[in-house]
């Protein structure tokens, strides 16, 4: 506390609209509680005691309607795929997707021999950031989220036609 208060007595800040919009988007990345498999446990642990994902403004929501970010944590099977599409469609824009773990990236260990696993979630929904690993360590996931924040900052909303 007190970091901003003492320095900005007049309460006037200069920035661009884009920067301000992007800054607010990136600072409250609410992610949907959507864990399908093993990677979901690492997602849980990232959100919990030691890694404390809340620091990044990312807290979990139980419903897609309140989420900005979908972290696809785990294997997506063909049976599940239609539901994933629906969940993605239910999220309000602007929305982002992180594919966490090899399964969500490419089908992972099930790529070759399984008939039931979708070989990469990008076959059904657009993906912004891929985090490799089986499962990725929490540090890796956090890096993925920071990468996403960087990408959000680059976004141009107000451009001259």
């Amino acid at each position: 506390m007190g970091v901003l208060e003492d320095r900005l007595p007049e309460n006037i800040l200069f920035t661009t609209v884009d920067k301000f919009l992007n800054w607010s988007k990136k600072s409250s990345l609410w992610y949907m509680l959507f864990a399908t498999a093993c990677c979901g446990i690492e997602l849980m642990q990232t959100g919990a005691s030691r890694y404390d994902l809340d620091r990044f403004g990312a807290v979990f929501r139980a419903t897609p309607r309140q989420s900005d970010l979908m972290i696809v944590a785990g294997t997506i099977t063909h049976k599940m795929a239609d539901r994933v599409k629906k969940l993605y469609a239910q999220m309000p824009s602007p929305k982002y997707v992180i594919a966490m773990g090899s399964c969500a990236n490419t089908g992972g260990p099930f790529y070759k021999d399984s008939y039931a696993v979708l070989k990469g979630v990008d076959r059904i929904i657009p993906v912004d950031v891929y985090v490799p690993g089986c499962p990725p360590k929490p540090e890796a996931l956090i890096e993925g989220i920071m990468k996403l924040q960087e990408r959000i900052m680059e976004k141009k909303t107000l451009v001259k036609k």
Binding site: H78, K79, A81, D82, Y115, K119, R123, I124
Partner: peptide, 24 residues
């Protein structure tokens, strides 16, 4: 899923090429 075709654990099962709107 209910609309799946074939009995996958049989030894002569051939993996499908497409399911719904995407490649398997």
């Amino acid at each position: 899923p209910d609309d799946w075709e074939g009995w996958p654990m049989r030894k002569d099962y051939v993996y499908p090429k497409r399911y719904h709107t995407w490649d398997v």
